[in-house]
C-alpha cells in the first residue's frame, strides 16, 4: 500500500498543479476589457462593491449608458448600481439579478425591456463579455447553458484558456499587470460616453412580419418578476428613450409590455414619449445619432427618474449615512471631474 501511495500522491499533486496552471493561463490570455471595449468589464465591476444598494438596474446598453448612479446619490441620496452589459439577454439579466439578490435586497429593481425582442442566443462575442465577468457559481453555469450559441462549448467557459489561447501571440501590457486585480471601468456600472453626435432622424423602424415578443423572453421576464416578489422587491419596467430607426421600439411591442405590466400590477415607464418633458435634445444629448444618450442626456434622464422614484417611494436619504458617505462622495467627485473635463 505504501509503495502505491508513493506514486499516487505525487501524481495527484501534479494534476492539481496542472489545474491551477490552466486556470492561471486562462486569466492571462482572457481579454481584460480595460482600455478598449470596456463593456466587457461591467459585469465584474459589481464584485468590487462593499455596501448594498436601494435600486438595482439590469439590462443592456440602454441602462448602463442612459442612467448614472452618481446623479441619483448626489441629487436624491438614493444608492443604486447598474448591472448591465452589451446586448444583455433576458435570461442573463434574470441570472445576474438572482446572483445579486443572494447578497443584498434592494427596494427597487429596474429592467429595460428592449432585450425582450431576442428569443434565442444571439452572438458569441456579447455572450463572452457578459458571462466571463461572472464569478464561478451554479447561477453562472445555468446562465452559460441558457446563452450558448451552437458554435460555443461549455468547456471554454469553465476554462477561458480553451477559447482565448490564440491571444497568446498578441498579449498587451494590461494582460500582464491585470491578471488578478482588475480596476473598475465604470461609475457603479455607468459607462460614461462624453461624445456628442446629434441628429434628428425622421425615419420609422423597418416593418416586421411578426411583432409578438418571443415566448422565451416573456418566460424569463416572469421568472424575474417572481424572484423580485419572493424577495419583497418592487420590479419597475422601463423603456429607455431612443430616437434611431435601428433601435426602434414598435408600438405593438409597447402594447404587449403594457398589458403584461398591467396584468401583474407592475409600473412601466416608456420614456420615449416623455423626451420633451425630460428635456432631452437629440442634437446634443446623444453620441451616436440617437441610439444611446451621452453623459448629458443620461444626467437629465436620471434627474427625471430620480424625481419619479422619490414621489412613488420613500427612500432614506443616504447622503447622511456615515458608513457609505465617503465612498459615494468620492464616486460623485470622480464622476463630476470626468464629466466636467469634457465640457
Amino acid at each position: 500500500m505504501k509503495k502505491r501511495l508513493k506514486i499516487l500522491l505525487p501524481c495527484i499533486a501534479i494534476l492539481l498543479l496542472l489545474a491551477t496552471a490552466l486556470v492561471l493561463l486562462g486569466r492571462l490570455v482572457e481579454p481584460k476589457y480595460l482600455t478598449e471595449q470596456k463593456e466587457g468589464g461591467l459585469v465584474r465591476d459589481y464584485y468590487k462593491e462593499t455596501s448594498s444598494h436601494d435600486v438595482l438596474f439590469v439590462g443592456d446598453c440602454e441602462v448602463y449608458e442612459n442612467f448614472t448612479p452618481a446623479t441619483l446619490y448626489r441629487d436624491y441620496g438614493i444608492t443604486s448600481y447598474i448591472r448591465g452589459s452589451a446586448q444583455q439577454l433576458v435570461w442573463q439579466s434574470y441570472y445576474l439579478l438572482e446572483e445579486m439578490l443572494k447578497t443584498e435586497t434592494p427596494k427597487v429593481v429596474v429592467y429595460n425591456v428592449l432585450a425582450l425582442k431576442y428569443g434565442e442566443p444571439q452572438n458569441e462575442a456579447y455572450n463572452r463579455m457578459t458571462l466571463d465577468g461572472m464569478k464561478n457559481s451554479l447561477t453562472k453555469w445555468r446562465a452559460v447553458l441558457a446563452s450558448m450559441t451552437d458554435e460555443e462549448s461549455f468547456a471554454s467557459y469553465v476554462l477561458p484558456l480553451l477559447r482565448f489561447h490564440d491571444r497568446f501571440g498578441q498579449l498587451k501590457g494590461e494582460d500582464l499587470t491585470a491578471i488578478f486585480d482588475r480596476p473598475t471601468v465604470s461609475y457603479k456600472g455607468y459607462l460614461m460616453q462624453t461624445g456628442v453626435e446629434g441628429g434628428v432622424s425622421d425615419r420609422e423602424g423597418i416593418p416586421l412580419t411578426d411583432y409578438t415578443l418571443p415566448e422565451r423572453s416573456m418566460e424569463y421576464l416572469e421568472k424575474m418578476r417572481l424572484t423580485c416578489e419572493e424577495h419583497g422587491v418592487e420590479l419597475i419596467l422601463i423603456k429607455s428613450p431612443t430616437n434611431h430607426w435601428k433601435y426602434y421600439w414598435y408600438d405593438e411591442w409597447d402594447e404587449q409590455v403594457k398589458d403584461y405590466a398591467a396584468s401583474h400590477g407592475l409600473t412601466y415607464y416608456n420614456f420615449i414619449p416623455l423626451c420633451e418633458e425630460i428635456g432631452i435634445d437629440w442634437n446634443t444629448d446623444t453620441y451616436d445619432k440617437g441610439a444611446h444618450l451621452n453623459v448629458y442626456g443620461a444626467e437629465k434622464l436620471t434627474v427625471y427618474f430620480g424625481k419619479l422614484l422619490q414621489e412613488t417611494h420613500n427612500f432614506d436619504d443616504r447622503r447622511e449615512d456615515e458608513t457609505i458617505k465617503t465612498e459615494w462622495n468620492a464616486l460623485v467627485d470622480a464622476y463630476q471631474a470626468a464629466k466636467g473635463k469634457e465640457k
Partner: peptide
C-alpha cells in the same frame, strides 16, 4: 501535464 499545457496554449483548435 506539460504536454496538456502546451496543447491547450499553443494548439490550433476551437472557434478560431
Amino acid at each position: 501535464a506539460c504536454l496538456v499545457i502546451l496543447i491547450l496554449t499553443l494548439g490550433s483548435y476551437g472557434i478560431g
